[in-house]
Design a protein around this nucleic acid. Sequence first.
DNA 1: CTCGATGCAAAGGTTTTGCACCAGG
DNA 2: CCTGGTGCAAAACCTTTGCATCGAG
Lengths: 147, 147
Amino acid sequence: MVTRRSLIEALRREGMRITAPREAICAVLAEPDLGHVSVAELQQRAEQVLGRGIDLSTVYRTVDALQEAGIVHHVHLGHGASVIHLSEEEHHHLVCDLCGRTVDLPLEELGPLAELLERHGYEPGTVHFAIVSRCLSHRDDPGSAAD
Amino acid sequence: MVTRRSLIEALRREGMRITAPREAICAVLAEPDLGHVSVAELQQRAEQVLGRGIDLSTVYRTVDALQEAGIVHHVHLGHGASVIHLSEEEHHHLVCDLCGRTVDLPLEELGPLAELLERHGYEPGTVHFAIVSRCLSHRDDPGSAAD
DNA sequence: CTCGATGCAAAGGTTTTGCACCAGG
DNA sequence: CCTGGTGCAAAACCTTTGCATCGAG
């Protein structure tokens, strides 16, 4: 279980300073039902927590710091902005190439894939990834994508 | 086997006009050893074929047209620009989150995954996708990503 | 001749960077 | 204090769009 405090502790352990914006961002990331958020969403929520504005670049830099610390990862889910999620949350994504609809895949479902990654010298399990395909309602559409 | 001519025929069949830039782009896409190219690379190669400049927006629009026709797809391989590849070339990618190193996966290796996609109402087989993980030399690195 | 394609330029969205100032340790 | 974080502004990067002109059919 990740708490606001444990995230902040991790930052401190990395020799990073604890500032108000970072505390707010950590608070948002520790929200129990948080799936994955874009940097812009993270900014907005953190601003609500903090009660004042936080610059986007600050959010980007804080996310970088949290990535350095191995606490979060970001993934590019097909088109548009990337999303941030806790490294602890080991799930992956199925993304529809056309409508962007996303389904979370629990780790257990990817057993066979792990072996495949391993065989090619890639690390299974640790990193979040996205599988882009097409959902039911777009299965037989022509090739145009949604960007 | 995809040839320059077959690509152009496909465009014509879609009611699209055959212009010099499009012929050059099709010629590049038909190159036998072409794996996947970014739009910028496609532009540069097509300019060499054509012997004069082609505007980037023209390349984007031609790629869109070829996507409409179902001839090519584009994928976002993690960070940076997306890459274009022939739809016919049914392979997928393992991408290292940290260094961008890419391994091509033949379709056969993804058998188990197809069943998984199917179960979640996603279309297996048709769409190119990328699996982002970490390659051997970065397996135990901290979280920082390469963007 | 007509409509679609082109080139150019401008804008849009995401992410990064430079810099002066502020504040955590 | 001193170094690192912040906000602001500007830039970089990828992609899309508006518009006048050109050329394929």
